[in-house]
Design a protein around this nucleic acid. Sequence first.
DNA 1: TGACAAAGTTGGAACGTTCCAATTATTAAC
DNA 2: GTTAATAATTGGAACGTTCCAACTTTGTCA
Lengths: 348, 348
Amino acid sequence: MGKGRVTVIDIAKAAGVSKSTVSLVLQASPLVNESTRTKVNAVMRELGYVYNRGAANLRQANARSKIIGIVVNDLTNSFFAELAVGVDTVVQSAGFVQFLSNTSESIDRQREVIASMREHGVSGLIISPARGTEATDLKPLVVAGIPVVLVVRNIPGAKVSSLVSDNHAGTFAAVEHLAALGHSRIAFVGGFPDTAVFDERLSGYRDAMSKTGTGFQDELVVSSAPSRAGGVGALARAMAMPEPPTAAVCFNDAVAFGVCDGLRARRIEPGKDFAVVGFDDVIEAKTTVPALTTISVDPQGIGQRAAQMLLKQINAGKPEAESVVSSVRLIVRESCGAAMNKLGRKMA
Amino acid sequence: MGKGRVTVIDIAKAAGVSKSTVSLVLQASPLVNESTRTKVNAVMRELGYVYNRGAANLRQANARSKIIGIVVNDLTNSFFAELAVGVDTVVQSAGFVQFLSNTSESIDRQREVIASMREHGVSGLIISPARGTEATDLKPLVVAGIPVVLVVRNIPGAKVSSLVSDNHAGTFAAVEHLAALGHSRIAFVGGFPDTAVFDERLSGYRDAMSKTGTGFQDELVVSSAPSRAGGVGALARAMAMPEPPTAAVCFNDAVAFGVCDGLRARRIEPGKDFAVVGFDDVIEAKTTVPALTTISVDPQGIGQRAAQMLLKQINAGKPEAESVVSSVRLIVRESCGAAMNKLGRKMA
DNA sequence: TGACAAAGTTGGAACGTTCCAATTATTAAC
DNA sequence: GTTAATAATTGGAACGTTCCAACTTTGTCA
């Protein structure tokens, strides 16, 4: 047994029909007689047949394989893991299989990964681009007519669909909320300054600071790596200021957790002596102590919507690029001190 | 332009050579003249040629595609995300590309995903099986001669390689450490009772409890979902006992974080009034406050070793199954109170 | 009975690549 | 100047599938 692989012809011989008929069975064609179908299926099970999608794809030059590629820039960030899960759910139920790769923010790695995916004939790509990705990097994909949906980070000039969250509105709402609670020295903490997401979130912060009358001050923005460790470091610099802030709007939840860690290490209780607001609403945000006030972007939901956008393009044939910004909302929990205020204890 | 895709024949025509020569160039064969090679390469770039691996695979019946599949049971758990990153690093540098899918603990989904991967001709599979996976589920893979490495959870009777961490030794060490710090009411918290991993960790706990003379008591093991939320719930039940524990060995870090959350919600300070030990050593463990004492299993390292085992099998041709249990070590940080003890403050 | 349609089935060509054996061009050796 | 060896190139067959047009069988209707 098992010298070469079992092919459609082996099945045909064993079932006493032609390979064409077997092929029709594989495609669940209504043309084939019910009794033939069951017999062929039985033989396939018996011989342990595995469909060779490569060969099939070769023949149907038009229809691409049933693979959706998803490329993320940092899988260890649970935001992306959840996004991937969201994509997976809709993609699987549409009969596709997901092909996830991680670039770790490396442009070279990203190029390799995308090339590999093209070689394997992906039907479409969902990409959260690595830092520094440019429109020209995506050019080959659009000329090849491969549908692409960018998520999280948009790339100006790339003629592909994108789905980003409303970063400006998010930080704007965060600042407004903190100002309403009585804070005026509100820092913007964390994130790498050379990314579009950073710019958008910072501008929301800046606009709100100006509007609420407290004014925007450059020294109150302290950047760092967008990670927990980065948050710890950034907080240290913020607290070293002559007049330290009493509240922080953080680049993302990871940074916010780091800020809380740093505060506690200084015997300052987040949510009581200092207000912290995150961005993303990862799962841990609601179970941690104190529960994190944050901007909800629903990573799974984003993944699902991105997948839907992509499938729509794939089915439409002609990839019509659309840009959607997904709205966002402030989830008030404990880390901003709002709960305390209700009890009459004024903070800051 | 660009009706059909660019093939090796188009390149051959444009470069004035035969398709065979182009094929040799693609495989970097030393047979082809240097000047021919550069010319062909130039034409390929110019026409935007993409290699069709499907077609290639079809011809080389022996050599499988350069895909490694990785199947995890819960991508939202950062342990698995990190494991995947570890696999990715070694797999990519060997010229393979990774194909990750998430089963969300569903056996059906797992079957679909594995079938899809076979259809796409994966060279090998790294699987962290869903709960309830049986040896027969893996049977088709081994008869087809596809190398498989099981990680995290082993499956008795499956004739495939496995790489699991030394769960028994881990919890044993944790209990010994806590006993040395003076604890005697030590609970085992979290995890689903019907998994092999749970049994192993529990038996390490049980053996150590017996050995240290405090004895094993059934009521001190309180199970739950292996998540942060599960930890919160389990702690609540533990503290409701007539004689509540003073320390907890947790099923994994996620549960341990939940336990810390629950303690703080009760105004009990983890690492001071109550000792907590986790299992896994995820990245957050060292930056959180208090830093988590835990059993280090180095998820990225496991991923890398698993990938190496798999590549070895793929290159060897004949898949020789090997079982390795990866050793594990106790990382003492703050949440167990050991640091406090050094300062003379006795806990519990 | 013959004509026609409907339901099933079928062989061969095609997809884009690699492998093989065969061919041609070039160089080396006598 | 012929032969042998080497270097470089080549056409055709094969991989496992799907599509197409053609075919057979069975049933229906005038």
